[in-house]
Design a protein around this nucleic acid. Structure first.
Lengths: 337, 337
DNA sequence: GCTTCCAGTGGGAGCGCTCCCAGATCAGGT
DNA sequence: ACCTGATCTGGGAGCGCTCCCACTGGAAGC
């Protein structure tokens, strides 16, 4: 706006020329590498300022073979899973950690076939310095792609079946166990479960935690009533549960959305919460706080999950070898149980 | 994993050599440009397959001066604004549209000073082919940066004050007006407003819509009670409102989170919704459906907002000149009004 | 038969940076 | 004086691609 002429971006050569040094020296000065005299370093800095020089990241990337970007790949058919703030929180954490390492965040939603193709291409063309991978389902085609990739890959949550070399996960089993133990400690003896999709490791692990806790308490686990982590599915699951086990007095739902759905069904069925039926959720998203009654739930450190994934990836990119991480959960008691 | 030797990626030269053609022909074949005989084209394709060749995007970017990526910049101090699914939805829409244009999505959360610096650098170094910019506050430093940038920029929502050349926005005024008119049509005469941050254009526009509607109906607008789009702020604002105007019979909240907060305060104050006080929200996020009672709210097409921003950006990148877009809203009546 | 044209071809010059390496400069030690 | 070894310096060769251009040869036009 201030300059009339829409001048082309100055290059490093022009900076060097203006500073009266060679391109090599200018480059070193810019990356503040050693072997540059104080005088020339300052001359370069001056030239940079005068010319308004900004290095071209693409050229740098080509020369260094480093893109300066990390990708966060979120697999999963329906973008509705993206409707709750879970991934948003992950992104906030990852973004902050990448910022510290001066890496850009590339976000890939691998929902369609085309999206998956592009992710595969990203892997094969080394379009990023590393990848964080989340939302994998059983037999997800991306699992194989990621394993073959000669690129740092950090998993967010473990994929079903295999345990990757590097991952950050939340203690799903422990959290679910704690939630269920809490229901038991309240004196509930007929505790049902609305589990999440059993083709995800989180869904399975949370069911495992529920079962373990009941078994340990000498109670009978009920067969899992499966939902898909959405509010309507929780509501529907609760209805089935109520029909099959009219005498139940506690419900553990594998996430807050489904717990909210369960609350709705219970309200409509005239069951008081927590007097008749105590309900515990999982996630501690906003919905847990605004639900009526506010949900007792298992808090998981979602932002930390994103942050740690990114940190682990950065470590990997720097050539070190981090160890997998399992983040703790914490029971938050509100009014629903 | 299958190959023992960790071979370097094959280059276009190697493909050309294997196919018995020059690099130029190979390049043309790859980009299926004209002036390549059928035979050679096939030879190149075969070589590509045999070698498992994948073009190096960085090298291509350097040569074409196109990065193949578009950035979505979300300005704003607190990442808590990211806690509701709003931006997640925008991302889903933008991602889908960019996928069609074969562009990658770069996500920049410009929360800290450092983050803002990086965005500025992105602009100045042309680190992306174009930028979508959202979440601008009054006097946001990024506004200036964006205006000076010699790069396609599409705004999501208009910044306070200036109206940029290209933007996609939601009809905030119209939506707020419709919501308020609806309250009036219900016979409510003392309609209060919990407005959003007035340093955002959305906050101001929604307040304007409220005021216009009341004035048009010959009623007195109440002074705006400001919240910051979060549930607690809505709850607090409602408490103040109740204290100052105990006789109010309707509330328009500038978003669903605040409406949910208002609902909570009203419940605690013993006011029946909608019998005593009718409440209308804005956004139609998940929280509107799970609130008790379910919220009557103004639905805005968030995914479409993201999609249209991306489409507009792609148009711009292709050298055409699109016109700004204002997306319609729609009142969704549930039980709260 | 001769131009005229154009699809097809490959050489080569970039794109803007990093980095190796050979040479220069200047200490200090003997 | 000389040599050794450190600190500087700039030339030049890439990184892997695109694209301009000059060239070929065969089909078409007269």
């Amino acid at each position: 706006m201030t300059e009339g002429a829409p001048r082309r971006h100055p290059t490093l050569d022009e900076v060097a020329e203006r500073a009266g040094v060679s391109r090599s020296v200018a480059s070193r000065a810019l990356n503040n590498a050693p072997h540059v005299s104080r005088a020339k370093r300052e001359a370069v800095e001056r030239a940079v300022r005068q010319l308004g020089y900004v290095p071209n990241p693409t050229a740098r990337a080509l020369a260094t073979r480093q893109t300066g970007a990390a990708a966060l790949v979120i697999s999963g058919e329906d973008p509705s899973i993206f409707a709750d703030p879970f991934y948003a929180q992950v992104i906030v954490g990852a973004s902050a950690a990448l910022e510290e390492a001066d890496l850009h965040l590339m976000l890939c939603l691998a929902a369609s076939d085309r999206g998956r193709k592009r992710v595969e291409e990203l892997f094969r063309s080394k379009g990023a310095d590393g990848v964080m991978l989340m939302g994998l389902r059983e037999d997800d085609p991306l699992t194989g792609v990621a394993e073959e990739a000669e690129m740092p890959v950090v998993f967010g949550g473990r994929p079903v079946g295999s345990a990757p070399r590097w991952y950050v996960d939340v203690d799903n089993v422990g959290g679910a166990r704690e939630a269920t133990e809490y229901l038991v400690s309240l004196g509930r003896t007929r505790v049902a479960v609305i589990c999440g999709r059993l083709d995800t490791e989180a869904g399975r692990a949370r069911y495992r935690g529920y079962r373990d806790a009941l078994l340990a308490a000498g109670l009978d686990p009920l067969p899992p009533q499966e939902g898909d982590f959405t509010e309507p599915s929780g509501s529907a699951a609760m209805a089935v549960l109520l029909a099959n086990h009219p005498d139940l007095d506690g419900v553990f739902a594998a996430n807050d959305n489904m717990a909210a759905g369960a609350l709705r069904t219970l309200r409509e069925a005239g069951r008081a919460v927590p007097a008749d039926v105590a309900v515990v959720g999982f996630d501690d998203l906003t919905v847990a706080r605004v639900a009526d009654p506010p949900l007792t739930t298992v808090h998981q450190p979602i932002t930390a999950l994103g942050r740690e994934m990114a940190r682990m990836l950065v470590t990997l990119i720097n050539g070190q070898d981090p160890t997998p991480l399992i983040l703790p959960t914490r029971l938050v008691t509100r009014s629903s149980a």
